[in-house]
């Protein structure tokens, strides 16, 4: 629950940042577009699992709609503040890699399972265009780093739950766990700088 709320918080921090500064400067459009694709391909199950958990279903709808709305704002209201020249990560490799893994190692060869596996792997690397952009500019607004931290910590917080499920309930989900570890690992140096600089009131600047 804390992880999911952190995920939810990250989306609201991002929207709040855009409203507050009337700008989407420093936010990677590519990463945001990849997240929308992640949510749409994973949460197709809304159509047949809606009544299994209203908590999950409501959050799925919120994630899809907030993500679509963020993209809408970036493409319309705040379009002039987005600089495509620094958002140059080649996201096609991420899409291709996630697609290949989904085709080779799905749990079952059904359209829904293939899309689910694709979305899990794509989510694990969807932040790369954003991190690449931060690395190119060498710094980030504090509010952008809060967004990245809330988004990064959410998958890390799933890890203790996976351990609890494995040892107490006796089951596991290797694809989700492996992809979740990759996703968390990608944030490690970001977390380090966030912890040593932003938490101490300093500006986020790369060494």
């Amino acid at each position: 629950v804390v992880a999911d709320l952190s995920h939810l918080l990250s989306i609201f921090i991002l929207l709040h940042k855009m409203y507050l500064t009337k700008s989407c400067a420093g936010i990677s459009f590519k990463s945001q577009a990849l997240y929308l694709l992640v949510y749409v391909t994973r949460y197709l199950d809304l159509f047949w699992t809606f009544n299994k958990s209203h908590y999950n279903s409501v959050l799925k709808i919120v994630f899809i709609s907030a993500s679509a709305y963020t993209l809408y704002l970036m493409k319309n209201e705040y379009r002039p503040t987005h600089d495509p020249n620094i958002d140059t990560f080649k996201s096609r490799y991420l899409l291709a890699g996630a697609a290949v893994l989904a085709i080779i190692f799905p749990y079952k060869y059904t359209p829904a399972e293939l899309l689910w596996t694709f979305s899990i792997w794509l989510e694990s690397v969807a932040i790369l265009p954003q991190l690449f952009m931060v690395q190119r500019t060498g710094e980030a607004e504090t509010i952008t780093t809060h967004y990245l931290f809330a988004l990064g910590i959410y998958r890390a917080l799933y890890i203790p739950n996976w351990l609890w499920r494995y040892f107490v309930k006796g089951y596991t989900d290797p694809i989700a766990v492996l992809a979740g570890l990759v996703q968390t690992a990608l944030y490690c140096d970001f977390f380090y700088i966030y912890w040593t600089k932003v938490m101490k009131g300093k500006k986020f600047e790369l060494p």
């Binding site: 999950n56 994630f63 309930k169 089951y171 989900d173 290797p174």
Partner: peptide, 10 residues
């Protein structure tokens, strides 16, 4: 490996 219920995570 015993796989858990799929749709209880986001």
């Amino acid at each position: 490996v015993v796989q858990g219920p799929r749709h209880d995570e986001l």
